[in-house]
Amino acid sequence: MSASQQTAHPAALLDARGLRAYYGDAPALHGVDLRIEVGGKVALLGANGAGKTTMLRAICGLIRTQGEIAFAGQEIRGFATEDIVRLGIAHVPEGRGTFAELTVEENLRLGGIIHSDKARTRQDIDRFLRYFPRLKERIRQQAGTLSGGEQQMLAISRALMLRPRLMLLDEPSFGLAPLMVLEIFQILKRINEEERVSLLIVEQNARLALELADHGYLLETGRIVLHGSSAELKANEEVQRAYLGYSGSKARRPESTPG
């Protein structure tokens, strides 16, 4: 297993070192190192309960942590979630976290609520809805009445409204039809290129995630056990066996459930 031996790089957007996280007193991450380049797309892979969601929650300050997290050169560990968000980290949580009782438009306005320029917020809504024409038709509808795919689109466009530099996505494919998943991943690729937003994606579906990402990290019971470029990971026998579904030899690790 390659231990983390990265050298500090000036272009790191997010640089977590020795990150530990706790649910109550129970540790869920045991000293994780993770790095995202400016404009980078990183996939975080692992089985259920490996600590992927915890990692995202730790970055956002939603749970108690120890260690270091630098965002654009600034130490943010221990900051309140509200302040971390204001620095430009948008989190699309698991289960999408839409404001179900509010309308699509209100959800989007809330996404940009930290920006005081209302005219620009209105422009942003039009601009980001270009990625999701379907949402535009439903702008006055209660968010809770949208389909799962539409809610995921809403969650992503709401995150965009923050004008973030980094977007954290927790299983964007969860519970969606395969075609919808493909559509969303294509849009994520465009967002990364056109809006220059870096991505950190947690996915059960390793194949899909490595297709999109340029780097990948493999998390097992709260520790990074492997990381490298997507090409390296795809070629790695271990990853192939346990996460990409190749049956080379008998799998020692628990089978991943493809999304």
Binding site: L62, E82, I114
Partner: peptide, 24 residues
Amino acid sequence: TTLGLKMRAVACNPTSSRLVGIRV
């Protein structure tokens, strides 16, 4: 009002409210 929208958001989903930067 924006403040009113924020308050409705917090009533609806406190965690998501924090994630859009509202001081809950």
